[in-house]
């Protein structure tokens, strides 16, 4: 986690896919996913916090970075809408 902002590190392209629609997001490897989530949710027209983001079957946390998860250039992130119910 102690990645200093290394400007030498090349940016990577993430392919973010929701229900057949995709958007390419270019990020630094040490960009926190919170920021990527917000951009993707806004882009797909969903409220903040309604998506579950998955990389290779694992849920991605807000505090993770692409670097933490060994995500490489061109890798795909899947978004799924999360519906929650109990009764309020």
């Amino acid at each position: 986690m102690s990645q200093e902002p290394e400007d030498v590190k090349p940016k990577i392209n993430l392919k973010v896919v929701y229900d057949g629609e995709e958007v390419q997001i270019k990020v630094k490897p040490n960009t926190k996913f919170a920021k990527i989530f917000a951009a993707a949710e806004q882009r797909f027209g969903k409220e903040s916090g309604t998506f579950k983001f998955v990389y290779e079957g694992k849920r991605i946390g807000k505090e993770d970075t692409p670097g933490d998860l060994d995500i490489e250039d061109g890798d795909q992130i899947d978004c799924f809408l999360e519906q929650l119910g109990g009764w309020q």
Binding site: P5, K11, N13, K15, V17, G20, E21, E22, V23, Q24, I25, K26, V27, K28, T31, A34, K35, I36, A38, A39, Q42, R43
Partner: peptide, 29 residues
């Protein structure tokens, strides 16, 4: 712009995140 403002505040690096629009339809289409 809004992202940059929201997350980066003063020490902003606007190049931190950018969205690329592909010219051709994506594979999944």
């Amino acid at each position: 712009d809004s992202e940059g403002a929201l997350f980066e505040g003063a020490n902003a690096d606007e190049q931190d995140l950018s969205i690329i629009e592909p010219d051709e339809p994506a594979e999944s289409v």
